[in-house]
Design a protein around this nucleic acid. Structure first.
Lengths: 187, 187
DNA sequence: GAACAATTTGACACTCAGTCCCAAATGGGA
DNA sequence: TCCCATTTGGGACTGAGTGTCAAATTGTTC
């Protein structure tokens, strides 16, 4: 209860006035909890925004894709499934959350700071999917996927383009350049 | 003068007692400057460590590699040249700096936070080398290189292996998987 | 329903990074 | 020597994050 209230009010305030302009005290007040409680639920202010309920689900969904798909293709399909299955409201909220992160230096940095961890999780997911290939090889595949994500992120910022579209395009290219030795199905 | 003194004393203290345990005040004292001066030269405490004199040089050196080399191969060669040309003392200092960054969450995060910027600079460098290929394509190449770097970084941490060795191995693989359409020379 | 234990919450004080502002020092020219 | 500009230092302030301890809440057992 407290947790949800904090997150909700925090997002509302952040979106209205910008991340930096809202203090932890204010959020706590708005959510009717004390500052202490705020920091008990969210060790840092960043956590309120950056903590993502979806990437766990997302990785599980990729893991569940047919084993004969290349990593890039498996990610691409999962992306589609998510876009299709999420309600428009949730999708819209996620978009705004992502936009806030990208527009705020601290949050962007925080998200990028999780890359090593994300890479480990992707590596583990790939290992579960293929169960062949040594750790270093799998890490490189994971790094390639993250590299595409990063390129999409920067592209989205610099060209003011859609992140998901760029990401998907990048995945397709990655698939084409590395996936020649794997079977492919059509989408 | 002040700048160098600050950086020197800061590194000495960080390496001795750990990054978090040393305050900006202490560093300023040790370097015989005021706190204000410290923050005038280094906007954040991180900057003292993370600010890298080499990556500028490194990118320039990659840019100067023969244009018929693949990006991965060009980077690989530049890496070799640097390892060979730097004095052992400087190389050792760089290793310790990197080790400090990797071992310190704040610094690691800070370094990763510069990835978008690094990607842009790599993209610009690739554009200067090839002058063919659209922005998105070049960004993806840059992303691939950074992905390899990230994989090496994580591998170095998790397997307690040498970062540079892993990075080079990753570059070789990247070159093999993408560079089939380009000429190659032997090292 | 009272008494009790455990967990959650709040209040408060503290450290430290980072910002701002203004006064003192420094260091060249003319 | 005087003047100007740039560099330095000295507080004072904000806000994030930590630690401690007491009060409140909740659940349990008799």
């Amino acid at each position: 209860m407290a947790r949800a209230a904090i997150q909700q009010h925090a997002m509302r305030l952040f979106l209205k006035r910008g991340y930096a302009a809202v203090t932890a005290d204010e959020i706590a007040d708005a959510a009717n909890v004390s500052r202490s409680t705020f920091f008990r639920y969210f060790p840092t202010k960043d956590d309120v925004v950056v903590r993502d309920a979806f990437d766990e689900l997302f990785l599980d969904a990729v893991k569940a894709q047919p084993a004969d798909l290349s990593p890039a293709e498996a990610v691409r399909r999962t992306l589609h499934q998510f876009m299709d299955s999420l309600t428009p409201e949730i999708l819209e909220m996620e978009r705004r959350r992502l936009a806030l992160i990208l527009a705020t230096p601290e949050l962007r940095q925080r998200m990028l700071g999780m890359y090593p961890d994300t890479l480990r999780r992707i590596t583990a997911m790939l290992a579960a999917r293929s169960r062949r290939g040594n750790a270093q090889e799998l890490r490189l595949q994971a790094g390639a996927l993250l590299g595409v994500g990063l390129a999409a992120l920067v592209g989205a910022q610099d060209e003011d383009a859609d992140y998901f579209a760029l990401f998907e395009e990048g995945l397709a290219r990655l698939d084409a350049s590395e996936g020649r030795s794997r079977k492919k199905r059509q989408h």
